[in-house]
Design a protein around this nucleic acid. Structure first.
Lengths: 335, 335
DNA sequence: TGGAACGGGGATAGCGTTTGCCATAGACTG
DNA sequence: CAGTCTATGGCAAACGCTATCCCCGTTCCA
């Protein structure tokens, strides 16, 4: 039974209404005397207003929800960081929800955040294209919007609305082009989680670059964005003959490939070049060449849009730039 | 304006009370006919109850809050995962709050979770010993408990209560002992964030092991758990003369040391052994020797305690085991 | 046959806030 | 001095639920 507004009012000898007005910056005037007594009473009993009750009546709450596909994935962590830093500055609280890439959980969290009357929701994490519950998701999303929340997507998702994202396809294409420019002809690819829109965009980029250069894209292995999947892809490349270079759909699986190759005694980048996509912090840890895709900035921009007091264009779409980070795992193809 | 219970009731032609009873498993009987109409009405208009209103009136809500010190830190990410998996199973929702290691934010989130009437709170992240706002934190914590939430700490914190944790001091001691057993005598140490209880426990462990072995622990550098700090510590070791082995307060800074050394052409583990503490996934990525400290299990156990319908001992303290993971960055000291 | 027991349902009091509306009392304005 | 502001404050109605209390019929048993 934490202190309630009624307790404060009683202690200060005023009505609940007056106490409320003194504590939140109401335009209704309150005498300095009363205000003083209220403030003193409030912190004497350690009062802090119930956000819940506030949200219920005002239909607004200073929280931003971030729905991510996987908390441990540095991709999302970085986006989240961006959201948080901006939110904090604007005195918003950020709550992170991990959907574990399950649409059902996304819907649940969306509903929860709607109930909480979150000011905005950053919807991160690419979904699956052929989602059977897409309609339900869309419904939940609509309701959130209807309830007044600003929703901004951070990954390409089939539904419209505000978007702040990176161009995964383009990023993959650029990285592939770079590999090609280094003289590599046979380039292998380690795919991401099947069906995920992010995975598919990256794969399209890879394929497009290869096609444009007139190269065969026949060296592809399944993957799931995880280290282990990169590792086993690496082993398979090892078994079936090494290509000139290998591109992985994300950094973590790229590191898997790298480690598998090096452990087998293959020189990277002397014999084979390896690259990832994402520019996450782990790529720096192992000096992996990758494409940096402004993740932090993506989150920050999304939060800025939500917080911004003036403009809110529910259909504005922003694509943030990416940049190739040439590091120690790629090199010109040996002559 | 999402559908409310009143809408459902109206559409089904029953009272709000009956609708409520049909939709949540009330003990009050409802005829199959009415129930059917209500259910049909509910999903026709896509009704989902307001957790907020529910929480307000029942004082209970199926959510578990996790307060972490830093989302991007794999340490916390792993704990969070454990919480989530168990929570999901029990049909609870998990919301993650990143305090950015600021006590003020911890207090804010604690209050928020109290308002939401969270069923439980997993308080992760070691605090700073000499915290000026410790009293406020304690107050917020007390209120949360008073409001009925089960609070379990995951890191050693000055305050009492339920605890599920790992013994950081012991883990550091064991790792140091292991290094000593490998024949190393001059062992360097890269510290964690100054003042953090976790940092201090690990350092104590290191010092204890060195003292017991009668070795000088004079090779220590400041650090902050980040990659860069490990890197610069590595550079300093390089400049001032290399020890036999280097232990870092966590994996990430250990990797920093490792990379700095290797880039300078120093053979690890041939010339110098390097180890970390934490057993996080990144350590696996670079094959770093480390101490695995059951992080996932810590979170899972904490969540289990919260969810468990029967027992709740608000003072039970559990210490989970740790295990040395010998990998490729340590070796016997060359003779 | 009286009444207890039970199946089924409705009214309504909160939960802790904010806020629109009304009341009171000085202070001003002509 | 009547009329009008303005500063200050209280009352009470929501917000969307759950839970308590009450009511109305049946059925069943002594």
């Amino acid at each position: 039974m934490p202190a309630s507004l009624a307790d404060v009012a009683r202690l200060a000898g005023v009505s609940i209404a007056t106490a409320s007005r003194a504590l939140n910056g109401s335009s209704h005037p309150v005498s300095p005397t009363a205000r003083g007594r209220i403030m003193r009473a409030a912190d004497e009993i350690g009062y802090s207003p119930s956000r819940l009750a506030q949200a219920l009546v005002t239909g607004r709450s200073p929280v931003i929800g971030v729905i991510v596909g996987d908390v441990v994935d540095p991709f999302f962590a970085e986006v989240t960081r961006g959201v948080e830093d901006v939110a904090r500055e604007g005195r918003y609280m950020t709550i992170i929800c991990d959907s574990d890439r399950r649409t059902g959980a996304e819907i649940d969290y969306l509903n929860l955040l709607r109930d909480y009357h979150a000011a905005g929701i950053v919807f991160a994490g690419g979904g699956f294209g052929e989602d059977p519950r897409a309609a339900d998701l869309q419904h939940a999303l609509d309701e959130v919007v209807e309830a007044g929340a600003r929703v901004v997507s951070v990954a390409q998702r089939p539904f419209g609305g505000a978007l702040v994202a990176v161009d995964n396809e383009h990023a993959a294409r650029d990285m592939t082009d770079h590999l090609i420019e280094l003289g590599h002809r046979r380039i292998g690819y380690v795919r991401g989680i099947p069906g995920l829109t992010t995975s598919e965009a990256r794969q399209r980029g890879f394929l497009a670059a290869m096609a444009t250069a007139g190269l065969q894209a026949d060296l592809q292995y399944e993957g799931n964005f995880r280290y282990e999947s990169g590792q086993s892809a690496g082993l398979q490349f090892l078994a079936k003959g090494l290509p000139d270079a290998i591109l992985a759909a994300n950094d973590e699986s790229g590191i898997g490939v790298l480690m598998a190759l090096r452990q087998a005694g293959v020189g990277v980048p002397e014999q084979v070049s390896v690259a990832g996509i994402g520019g996450t912090r782990v790529s720096q840890l192992v000096d992996l060449t990758t494409v940096s895709v402004a993740l932090y900035e993506t989150g920050a921009e999304a939060a800025r849009r939500i917080i911004d007091r003036t403009v809110w264009d529910p259909d504005r779409r922003t694509i943030l730039p990416h940049r190739i980070l040439v590091r120690g795992t790629t090199a010109r193809r040996p002559a």
